[in-house]
């Protein structure tokens, strides 16, 4: 068991290294231009957002629509640390993440008693309140936007490594006794409590870790964009992240990673459709949910690939 786990980890790291090497090579060869390297950076940020939300919404099973709020706390805190305290980038990033984590705990303690739709709507409310606060504080420069905090010499590597670390940490959490406790809460909270799991503690823990990495993503986003406006972090951003998690599969890390990458890159190809892009996105979203939930995927596949047998598990 121990050997297999280490083997899996090593294989995953080698895979990450190969992907990294390939991207760096393509960048230096000029195949991936400035525009596309920006998209790859956004893909890394979205991977961090999706995998971290998956811990709270997928593994823990708590439906939240406030991830963009934690992201904005991380983004503004790290930007302000760079701007006013002149801290080095990585330290600012860490402080931003810790701030997001603390806000996550602060919000999590009272709200995590609620379930389902109610939790969803209350986290949305916190998301919007954070946005209004950012909009009205003088230090954040409100709607005019915050600028001038960008650090020099931060390239793609930082974003990529951050994404890898996030995935690794969440994988480790899930594969430990702590992770099993978290998953058991998702499955049946009462049974989990009566199996001796301190459920409140683990809910807050999962939520805090999730918020921490949302803060990391926020700090990276700030560094990449070089300008922050509160409207970026409204609930539509939270919805976007949640959609990545759901399409990738709740409690499925690989799925989250793939969904985040696809949903970052795909819209770029849809630019040709301009005005119709969001419309198309909406249609795809509805269709994807129905296909996924009704388990139509295998059936549709079988229509196109007739030789394959189909199993539909209910």
């Amino acid at each position: 068991m121990k050997k297999k786990q280490i083997k899996d980890l090593i294989i995953s790291f080698i895979a990450a290294l190969v992907i990294y090497g390939l991207i760096m090579f393509l960048m230096s060869a000029g195949v991936v231009d400035y525009y596309w390297s920006g998209i790859l950076i956004m893909a890394c940020i979205n991977v961090i957002l999706a995998t971290s939300l998956n811990l709270a919404s997928g593994y823990l099973g708590q439906l939240t629509l406030g991830h963009a709020g934690f992201m904005s706390v991380g983004a503004y805190t790290s930007a302000l640390c760079s701007l006013y305290l002149h801290l080095p980038f990585l330290l600012s990033l860490l402080i931003g993440a810790i701030a997001a984590c603390l806000i996550g705990i602060l919000i999590g303690i009272p709200t995590l008693r609620l379930k389902g739709d109610y939790l969803c709507i209350i986290t949305l409310a916190f998301n919007e309140i954070i946005r209004v606060i950012m909009l009205n504080l003088s230090i954040t420069n409100g709607a005019k936007g915050l600028m001038g905090f960008q650090a020099m010499n931060i390239d793609f590597s930082v974003y990529f490594i951050s994404a890898v670390i996030t995935i690794y940490v969440i994988y480790c959490v899930v594969k430990s006794r702590h992770g099993r406790a978290i998953i058991s809460i998702c499955e049946d909270e009462t049974a989990s409590e009566l199996s001796g799991i301190p459920t409140s503690y683990y809910k807050i823990l999962a939520f805090a870790i999730s918020a921490f990495f949302a803060g990391v993503a926020g700090g990276l986003y700030a560094q990449y964009m070089g300008m922050l406006v509160p409207s970026t972090f409204d609930y539509n951003k939270s919805v976007e992240i949640l959609v990545m998690v759901v399409l990738g599969g709740l409690g499925n890390l690989k799925g989250s990673i793939i969904a985040a990458i696809v949903m970052t890159i795909l819209p770029e190809y849809l630019r040709a459709f301009a005005d119709y892009r969001m419309l198309l996105y909406a249609v795809v979203l509805i269709a994807a949910m129905i296909i996924k939930e009704k388990n139509l995927g295998p059936r549709i596949k079988s229509k196109f690939f007739k030789n394959k047998t189909v199993e539909v598990d209910d």
Partner: peptide, 13 residues
């Protein structure tokens, strides 16, 4: 039971 977890993971919880 924790239906989607494996039998052994149920005990491990």
């Amino acid at each position: 039971l924790f239906k989607k977890m494996s039998v052994i993971d149920n005990v491990k919880v």
